[in-house]
Design a protein around this nucleic acid. Structure first.
Lengths: 135, 135
DNA sequence: CTGCATGCAAACCGTTTGCATCCCC
DNA sequence: GGGGATGCAAACGGTTTGCATGCAG
């Protein structure tokens, strides 16, 4: 609710992890990001990547996407938007469907929960996987 | 695409796992279900619970809910519906918001994916956690 | 200097799997 | 009787954590 903690250090690792997440088109998993970052910082540890992603997500700098699939994914676009996941390759992309608050209103009306938010995840087959004759 | 495999055996374990899932109000995790089932079958293995839940989900008898949180949850209600998860205790409930196909149409229009489905997950604070002054 | 951050490796946790045995059909 | 199902325990994959050291402020 308040400003980001002031004790946030600008380490090289932090900057590069954030830069690589910004550059990534799709939404990478922690270990995909680890591979990207390691090209520039060969000795970085996986733990450092996880710790920084967690921290940046807490600060609201990035988004942690916890949807289907076994791994969490990360997103440098923090505005509210929906995602689509490929059932074949597991890739996650943004999808340009307008975010409605109507859903939240309906939810508030029909539930005893205090509604905080919502997320829509589509599943489908991405362009690339559609052209593979499936093997 | 075809009918359920005919080689589906009616074992005691299978029946009891299904019964306990039907009885559960909220949507239990595999190990919550394991604990429930173990009261009636003390020697059942966790692996058996997982194998049967997986199998029943494949057959469409139950729903596997892969949303936020670290664990998968299971649901005996197979019709299309949305869920809400408590941010405090992690419990997942059904929510009575009408399922729209409009979302799918919009997604199909604005994406190169072949859309297969969608799911909406709300997050909020459940009635029970609202009354706890948070400690 | 001081303490947050890092690298490394071990621990963790949910889930899956191999295998000998069991038992439903 | 035979092949799918079980119980048990070990393996697995993703994530977290403890600890000695490093480095930003």
């Amino acid at each position: 609710m308040s400003a980001p903690a002031s004790s946030f250090r600008l380490t090289t690792q932090r900057q590069i992890i954030f830069e690589e997440l910004l550059k990534a088109k799709s939404h990478p998993t922690a270990s995909e990001l680890y591979d990207l970052v390691r090209k520039r910082l060969p000795h970085i540890g996986l733990g450092t990547v996880y710790r920084n992603l967690e921290l940046m997500a807490e600060q609201g700098m990035i988004l942690k996407i916890e949807v289907g699939g076994t791994q969490k994914r990360f997103d440098a676009t923090t505005g509210s938007h929906y995602h689509i996941r490929c059932s074949v390759c597991g890739k996650v992309d943004d999808i340009d469907v307008p975010v409605t608050h109507e859903l939240v209103v309906q939810a508030a009306d029909s539930s005893s929960y205090l509604i905080l938010g919502h997320h829509v995840e589509f599943t489908g087959i991405c362009h690339n996987c559609q052209r593979q004759p499936l093997h």
